[in-house]
Design a binder for these strands. Structure first.
Lengths: 346, 346
DNA sequence: CTGTTAGCGCATTCAC
DNA sequence: GTGAATGCGCTAACAG
């Protein structure tokens, strides 16, 4: 009635009538073992359903062949796509990816970090809830595991990062609206404390400023209601906008829904352009123009950079010493209908 | 220039001038340790940035406090929501959830299963690529880890499962279309080898049969093009449908796009009803009626059932002996506009 | 309250 | 080709 534990290497050895070493050799490739013994041991392994205990290997001090990924949410398409891409890289490197979600809570984030370190992951990918968190920064600097930040950098730390060109993407998007003849472009968003959002705001400001237009920014959009309120206020104001630039996915959708509800057509009298693509952007009417981020590329590049860090045999010293790399990935403006370009319906 | 390993318990003990056991006690709650020593040890732990090595604990034979989740894809909203719910349960039970994706490939699935077993997860949640896979079934029956299947059961095995009422949901949906006066209902889908899809087909058949209507089934929808071809063929046929019942998310969206492209209005002349809800279903025009699955509930219930399996102190014997449980979760018909009900725009 | 010791499962010397 | 012995970091008896 005790826990019927999984078979161990020793048990396999006993059953096969060989020593531990031989079994160890068999499960690690079968070099230096006579074909006969090899076959016999393999048969026993199979019969017993033996699986090497990863924990024991880890204890020997080798790599654990696991890497961690800490993201705000698994249900967010952006991050789950990143995760999927990172997992592919991990698998290619014979490693396991462990994903944990923080709901953007700094406390949970640090907890997750500790859990992963306890599991001795070989490296860590993290999308920090707060790019300038003192606590996170200190923790990260003390940790000896290689870390790569994704989507958002960690300031004042030595960790490399892979992020989108938020600034350039937002500036180009705003310029695009200006080229469409819009000269009253309102910028809407929520979560303005996030690094990504701040960069996009900078981009919007830069473009609007360069064109000599006025900046209209509302960072209070958190749900449909707040979007409705914000947009109605703008329309009732002295200078109603003729374009909306939304800085994040949910805001874009809320804005679309509000305009649809108010029976205001797009792109005229109001154009809509959003940062970050989403699945049904082409199916909505009008189809929604967006700044598209290379989501998979971010996950992949970050994971690859991470593996470089602990696979650099010759130059491991260099890698360690090298100052953090900041990889910026280009965004792409997808011209559909809502901004005034003629989109392809499907 | 060697790998600067993480500090160990012994090092903490030495620095603090105490024995291993004391340190062990401190990191496990600090019972039976004098406040003075406790403080000192804690200070050393902090100074060294010590984190207990999970692997060593595992080796002692205790629970690893990790559970595995094997799903087809992390990028699929259905599964990522499940994962998120499962993770919440895991966290509540002081455990770590390890998610791996298989892309519905049986080979990858078994590989992942082995990896997770190697890591000695305490239990396993799995959405099998193939409900009747012989190999999976055998493997699963031999494994001693508790397993719960999610979304799709594993036939001929002793594993419990948590799945939606696919049959009842599909039957009710079809009946609903019939009540709307549709008497030529075509059923469209892809991936007809999946258990879930087959159940939904059964449901459709049951309702259509009971009403004395004819069954029109097309299981070849894999992308927009195939949907377009299928729908155009139906419309050009002798008996054009006045309703489309789509059995999975992507098919629903393809069907919507095709109808939109062909300028065919919904719900008349053709009504649309889909199985499985999706994010912008309310934003599309018309809003799309669907059979909604309790996604989070599935993940949560499965994880809870799993934890029951190895937390049943008193009745662990019972749990082990008990025949597998099959938990069926109710679906809900969400009446929006595309089926003929008046949906709320937002 | 605190320290000593043994052993978890495995890879790895080093002999044979 | 093969096996016996050692130790990885930690917890759990068992003394003191």
């Amino acid at each position: 009635m005790k826990k019927n534990r999984l078979p161990t290497l020793s048990e396999v050895a006993r059953q096969a009538g060989v020593g531990n070493t031989t079994v160890s050799r068999v499960i690690n490739g079968g070099e230096r073992v006579s074909p006969k013994t090899l076959a016999r041991v393999r048969r026993v392994i199979d019969a017993l359903g033996y699986r090497p205990n990863q924990a024991a290997r880890v204890l020997k001090g080798d790599r654990t062949k696991t890497i961690g990924l800490i993201i705000p949410s698994m249900a967010d398409p952006f991050f789950s796509s990143c995760a999927e891409a990172a997992q592919a890289v991990a698998r290619a490197n014979d490693s396991l990816l462990i994903v944990t979600a923080t709901q953007n809570d700094p406390h949970t984030e640090i907890e997750n970090l500790n859990v992963l370190v306890s599991h001795r992951v070989d490296g860590l990918l993290i999308a920090p809830a707060n790019s300038r968190s003192q606590a996170l920064c200190e923790l990260v600097n003390r940790l000896s595991v290689p870390i790569v930040a994704i989507d958002r950098p960690i300031f004042n730390s030595s960790v490399s990062s892979v992020v989108s060109e938020n600034f350039k993407g937002a500036r180009a998007a705003t310029q695009h609206l200006i080229e469409h003849g819009c000269e009253r472009i309102a910028c809407l968003t929520g979560e303005s404390t996030l690094f990504t959002i701040q960069e996009r705001i900078r981009g919007y400001r830069a473009a609007v400023g360069a064109a000599g237009l006025t900046c209209t920014l509302n960072t209070s959009i958190k749900d449909y209601r707040s979007a409705e309120y914000a947009i109605e206020s703008l329309l009732d104001g002295p200078n109603p906008p003729n374009a909306l630039f939304t800085l994040k996915n949910s805001t874009t959708i809320y804005a679309f829904e509000v305009l649809q509800k108010l029976n205001i057509a797009m792109p005229k009298p109001i154009a809509l352009l959003g940062f970050d693509d989403f699945e049904l952007a082409t199916t909505l009417r009008p189809s929604v123009s967006v700044v598209q981020q290379p989501v998979e590329d971010i996950g992949r590049a970050a994971a690859e950079l991470l593996f470089e860090k602990f696979l650099g045999t010759a130059s491991s010293q260099q890698v360690r010493t090298a100052r953090p790399r900041r990889i910026l990935l280009e965004t792409q403006l997808i011209r559909r209908s809502s901004c005034g370009c003629t989109g392809h319906p499907a």
